[in-house]
Deep mutational scan, measured.
Amino acid sequence: CHSECLGNCSQPDDPTKCVACRNFYLDGRCVETCPPPYYHFQDWRCVNFSFCQDLHHKCKNSRRQGCHQYVIHNNKCIPECPSGYTMNSSNLLCTPCLGPCPKVCHLLEGEKTIDSVTSAQELRGCTVINGSLIINIRGGNNLAAELEANLGLIEEISGYLKIRRSYALVSLSFFRKLRLIRGETLEIGNYSFYALDNQNLRQLWDWSKHNLTITQGKLFFHYNPKLCLSEIHKMEEVSGTKGRQERNDIALKTNGDQASCENELLKFSYIRTSFDKILLRWEPYWPPDFRDLLGFMLFYKEAPYQNVTEFDGQDACGSNSWTVVDIDPPLRSNDPKSQNHPGWLMRGLKPWTQYAIFVKTLVTFSDERRTYGAKSDIIYVQTDATNPSVPLDPISVSNSSSQIILKWKPPSDPNGNITHYLVFWERQAEDSELFELDYCLKGLKLPSRTWSPPFESEDSQKHNQSEYEDSAGECCSCPKTDSQILKELEESSFRKTFEDYLHNVVFVPRKT
């Protein structure tokens, strides 16, 4: 048989008469490798580009789960590009990614509803959504962080984005990388972005840091009482949809009607710091009717980097990364020049730590249904340095008659930039024990000054392991946590139920 035959053949030295091919099969003959313009397919066939392209389009058009959109890589027609490569849609070739590779997620039936953290986790790592997304989240724990972890990498949506009755959302900033909504599939009414009845939605994105392009379709905003109209108009300008909307697409009466839409800028007039305090004062603000001013709200939190936005980490279910302080308005003076500047002394802060701070007014709604208010920009203030805590785990070892090696770990709280350490030492008198000992005694162990690591005695271990207080009263049991108490109650309830079950099964009433 021919060298490319495997198993047997019907005619000697003829690659077209093989029972099976050793390498690849091409047009009725066995070959060692697939010549151009053919590609290896499933490690035994040679196919042309049209064959591989037909497989790709067949799966793409069917949208069946589990099928493969075949691509070409290293002269092979394979189910998908290997790690580190992405497909070129024009020629199906796998090309190296520039940075992290995109991950295209194809949605069944063309859309997916995100109504819980669990459903959001199914899209973790996706960068391109081939379909439409509907966000409908009523509640949950730590929602802002969970949504950002699972949806934060999405850069492109081919269909539309719909935010509907998501009472738990305060902001859409968890879509931190969303840059493009194509609108290839539109919501009824030709809408590519749809926001309806979101009672706590206050911000779409921080438009000073976020760009969003909507290729096709219109915007729809109705019944978002805490979303200011200025935020919607800003989205029109940034996304390129200005002029597409009709009169009733953006409701003037049901958007922002319960919001404090600040239209003035508060400026800080005085800032002073110490290692654990920050004193702030800002310019006074009074609405047209000074009785509408209820006070100020001061927001602050630790910020290692200057990239904080107002609604980071917030949701309507209680999660809030900001510390909020309510401040009463100052006494009002008739003389504008003698107006008191409101302020606040922030206490209990960490030394040498940068804080993000902003302040906003708290006002009631005027009778004319106009909203007044003022808010400052987010500023960054760093507390002063102070003395560091003591170095940890000092170790001293003498390696000769004239040297001592000293080692330690950095302090747990540096409280500033540590530039150097101060080492103090003092000579001590020799131990009298060394002169009084009889060095001729056998088995004498000389006193040693070398360091030995501390260890816990058996008594201390027994005390720590004991669940009861000892007789001397030195140790006591740790208080039980809520989960331990709940577990004990469940076990007790189970024992009672099981005992009742045994009584009912074992003891049967005697027939009379």
Rank of each mutant, 00 (worst) to 15 (best):
L108N: 14
C126G: 00
P329M: 15
K409T: 02
F268R: 00
H106V: 11
R182Q: 03
V170T: 08
R291F: 05
S398I: 15
G159V: 03
K162L: 15
S321P: 07
N150A: 05
L151T: 05
I188T: 13
R165A: 11
T127K: 15
T215V: 07
A120R: 02
T118D: 15
I188K: 05
G152D: 01
G217K: 03
E246G: 15
D315Q: 12
V104A: 03
A251V: 13
P304H: 03
P342H: 07
C105L: 01
D393A: 14
S396K: 13
K162H: 13
D197L: 14
R369V: 08
H341C: 07
P388R: 02
L219P: 09
A168R: 15
L201T: 03
F220A: 06
Q245L: 04
Q258F: 12
I378L: 14
P287H: 14
S166K: 00
I134T: 04
V324G: 11
I395R: 13
V128R: 15
P351N: 05
N142V: 08
Q339L: 11
F193S: 00
S269D: 06
F193Y: 05
R291V: 14
I405T: 07
N340T: 12
R124L: 07
P394E: 03
G125A: 04
Y285T: 08
Q203K: 07
R291Q: 15
P342M: 10
A303W: 05
L331Y: 10
I137G: 14
E236G: 04
T361H: 07
V381Q: 11
G313P: 03
D289G: 14
R347H: 15
E111R: 06
L345D: 12
L298H: 00
Y380A: 02
S401N: 15
L280K: 00
G125I: 15
Q306V: 12
S239W: 05
P284F: 15
Q258M: 05
K234M: 00
P288K: 03
R176V: 10
P351G: 13
V363H: 11
L252R: 10
L133T: 02
D326M: 07
P342L: 12
W344S: 12
K226E: 08
I135Y: 01
G189E: 15
I250P: 06
R369T: 04
D292T: 14
Y380Q: 04
M235P: 00
I379N: 13
T215S: 06
D289T: 05
S230K: 11
K360R: 12
F174T: 05
Q306R: 11
S321N: 05
D326S: 15
L331G: 15
Q199W: 14
K277Y: 09
W344G: 09
S166N: 04
G183Y: 01
K103S: 11
D257W: 09
T364L: 01
F268V: 08
F275M: 05
N211W: 09
I157G: 00
R332L: 08
R124Q: 04
Y194M: 12
M346R: 02
K209V: 11
A303R: 08
T254S: 10
V390N: 10
Y191F: 06
Q245T: 10
E156D: 10
P287R: 07
Y194F: 12
T371F: 05
I214W: 05
G140S: 08
S132H: 02
S116N: 04
R179K: 13
L201P: 00
F221R: 00
T323Y: 14
K226S: 05
P391T: 04
A149D: 09
E236T: 15
S158I: 10
L406G: 00
K277W: 11
N248S: 10
E187R: 11
D312L: 04
L123T: 04
D393V: 04
F174L: 08
E231H: 09
W282E: 00
P391D: 03
N387G: 15
G152M: 02
A120M: 06
R138W: 00
L227R: 00
G131N: 03
N387D: 03
L204I: 10
D257Y: 12
I154G: 00
A120F: 05
F174Y: 09
N263G: 15
S260G: 05
F220V: 09
Y300R: 03
A374D: 03
T127N: 12
L169C: 05
N224R: 01
I271L: 08
P391Y: 01
P394I: 04
K253S: 06
N340V: 09
S333Y: 04
Q306P: 14
Y285K: 08
L279P: 00
D292S: 08
A356R: 03
E184D: 14
I129W: 10
N263C: 07
E368N: 10
L294V: 00
T215L: 04
K209T: 13
P330V: 06
D328H: 06
R369C: 09
F299A: 12
T371N: 07
N190K: 15
L219R: 03
I378N: 01
N320V: 05
L219V: 07
W344Y: 07
W322M: 03
E237R: 13
G343R: 06
V128N: 15
P394R: 04
P284K: 15
G140R: 11
E146R: 15
K209I: 13
A144H: 15
V104R: 01
L169T: 07
G159S: 03
Y194K: 07
E283V: 13
Q258W: 13
W286S: 06
E264K: 03
S171E: 09
K407R: 04
T371Y: 03
C126L: 00
V381P: 04
N387L: 11
N211Y: 05
A374H: 11
I250N: 10
R347C: 07
S116H: 09
H210N: 03
I188Q: 13
L186E: 05
Q382S: 12
T185W: 05
D328L: 13
K409Q: 15
S402G: 01
D206E: 15
P410E: 06
F221A: 13
I135F: 09
L406P: 01
S402C: 04
R347G: 03
F290K: 02
D276G: 05
E187Q: 03
P287S: 13
D115W: 04
Q403Y: 14
V104N: 00
L201A: 05
V324F: 10
N334R: 14
N263L: 10
R176A: 05
K162R: 06
R369D: 02
I114C: 08
N142Y: 07
N307T: 05
L345I: 15
P351R: 07
N130E: 13
L294K: 13
S376I: 01
Y380G: 01
S132F: 00
S116Y: 05
I327T: 12
I188L: 10
Q203F: 01
P284S: 05
Y194V: 10
D115L: 02
I188A: 15
L294R: 01
L180T: 12
D328E: 14
S173D: 07
R244H: 14
A259K: 13
R179Y: 10
S333H: 11
K162W: 05
T353W: 02
S208R: 08
G313M: 13
L266E: 00
Y191V: 08
Q258Y: 15
S208M: 13
Q339P: 08
E156K: 07
I154L: 12
P410H: 09
I129C: 15
W286C: 13
S319I: 07
F175T: 01
Y191L: 06
K375A: 06
V397R: 05
K209A: 05
D257R: 05
G373V: 11
W344Q: 10
I163T: 06
F290P: 09
D115T: 13
Y223C: 10
K360D: 03
L153F: 11
K253C: 12
I327L: 12
R138K: 08
G295W: 15
M297K: 03
L266A: 03
K267C: 05
F193Q: 00
A195G: 12
I134F: 14
I404N: 01
T215H: 13
G131K: 00
P329L: 14
D312P: 15
Q121T: 06
E155I: 15
N248V: 06
F275N: 15
K209G: 07
R291Y: 01
G152P: 00
A149T: 11
T254A: 11
T213P: 04
A251N: 10
R281N: 11
P288N: 12
R244I: 07
E236S: 08
K103M: 06
D115R: 05
I135M: 04
S321V: 14
D335V: 05
K375V: 04
E302A: 07
G256R: 08
F311T: 14
L161R: 00
N190T: 09
S398K: 01
T386V: 14
E155K: 13
L331F: 09
S321Q: 05
Q245N: 14
A251E: 11
L108E: 11
R244N: 06
